[in-house]
Simulated scan of single mutants.
Amino acid sequence: MVPSDPSGHRHEHGHVHHNHGQASPHPAQAAPWSILRMNVVSRLGAALAVSAALWGVVWMAMR
């Protein structure tokens, strides 16, 4: 609950507060994509692409 202003009006910030204890964590949300659901070839391709991009950054920084 958001505390009231002494002037009597409330300040809403556009987000919802909810309470849950340690025994009930947030429920899982569906991810739009997951690296764990990719096949091995796709994972390897993604890893190579990320590696190439990072090496590109290193190469540009050393120029």
Rank of each mutant, 00 (worst) to 15 (best):
residue 1 M to Q: 01
residue 1 M to S: 01
residue 2 V to K: 00
residue 3 P to Q: 07
residue 3 P to A: 12
residue 3 P to N: 08
residue 3 P to W: 01
residue 4 S to K: 08
residue 4 S to I: 08
residue 5 D to H: 15
residue 5 D to I: 01
residue 5 D to F: 07
residue 5 D to V: 04
residue 5 D to W: 08
residue 5 D to T: 06
residue 6 P to Q: 07
residue 6 P to A: 10
residue 6 P to K: 06
residue 6 P to I: 06
residue 6 P to V: 07
residue 6 P to T: 06
residue 6 P to F: 06
residue 6 P to S: 11
residue 7 S to M: 11
residue 7 S to K: 14
residue 7 S to E: 14
residue 7 S to P: 01
residue 7 S to F: 07
residue 7 S to I: 09
residue 8 G to W: 00
residue 8 G to P: 01
residue 9 H to W: 13
residue 9 H to G: 07
residue 9 H to N: 14
residue 10 R to A: 08
residue 10 R to T: 04
residue 10 R to M: 08
residue 10 R to E: 05
residue 10 R to I: 02
residue 10 R to D: 05
residue 11 H to R: 08
residue 11 H to I: 05
residue 11 H to M: 06
residue 12 E to P: 03
residue 12 E to H: 13
residue 13 H to C: 09
residue 14 G to D: 02
residue 14 G to N: 03
residue 14 G to Y: 00
residue 14 G to C: 04
residue 15 H to A: 02
residue 16 V to G: 03
residue 16 V to W: 00
residue 16 V to Y: 02
residue 16 V to F: 03
residue 17 H to P: 00
residue 18 H to Q: 05
residue 18 H to P: 02
residue 18 H to R: 03
residue 19 N to L: 09
residue 19 N to R: 09
residue 21 G to W: 03
residue 21 G to A: 06
residue 21 G to F: 01
residue 22 Q to A: 15
residue 22 Q to L: 13
residue 22 Q to E: 12
residue 23 A to Q: 15
residue 23 A to H: 15
residue 23 A to K: 13
residue 27 P to C: 04
residue 27 P to H: 03
residue 27 P to F: 03
residue 27 P to Q: 06
residue 27 P to L: 01
residue 28 A to W: 01
residue 28 A to I: 02
residue 29 Q to G: 04
residue 29 Q to S: 10
residue 30 A to G: 05
residue 30 A to F: 00
residue 31 A to D: 11
residue 31 A to F: 02
residue 32 P to Y: 05
residue 33 W to I: 11
residue 33 W to A: 14
residue 33 W to Q: 10
residue 34 S to Q: 08
residue 34 S to A: 12
residue 35 I to G: 11
residue 35 I to E: 09
residue 36 L to E: 14
residue 36 L to I: 10
residue 37 R to A: 15
residue 37 R to S: 15
residue 37 R to V: 09
residue 37 R to T: 15
residue 38 M to S: 10
residue 38 M to L: 15
residue 38 M to C: 14
residue 38 M to N: 06
residue 39 N to P: 02
residue 39 N to T: 08
residue 40 V to I: 13
residue 40 V to R: 14
residue 40 V to L: 14
residue 41 V to P: 00
residue 41 V to L: 14
residue 42 S to A: 15
residue 42 S to I: 09
residue 42 S to T: 14
residue 43 R to W: 05
residue 43 R to P: 01
residue 43 R to D: 04
residue 43 R to E: 03
residue 43 R to A: 03
residue 43 R to Y: 03
residue 45 G to Q: 13
residue 45 G to Y: 05
residue 47 A to S: 13
residue 48 L to C: 14
residue 49 A to S: 10
residue 49 A to P: 00
residue 49 A to E: 08
residue 50 V to A: 15
residue 50 V to Q: 10
residue 50 V to T: 14
residue 51 S to Q: 09
residue 51 S to F: 12
residue 52 A to H: 07
residue 52 A to P: 04
residue 52 A to M: 07
residue 52 A to C: 09
residue 53 A to F: 08
residue 54 L to F: 12
residue 55 W to D: 10
residue 55 W to E: 10
residue 55 W to L: 15
residue 56 G to F: 04
residue 57 V to W: 04
residue 57 V to A: 05
residue 58 V to F: 05
residue 59 W to P: 00
residue 59 W to H: 10
residue 60 M to N: 11
residue 61 A to M: 14
residue 62 M to R: 15
residue 62 M to A: 15
residue 62 M to E: 11
residue 62 M to Y: 12
residue 62 M to S: 15
residue 63 R to V: 07
residue 63 R to Y: 05
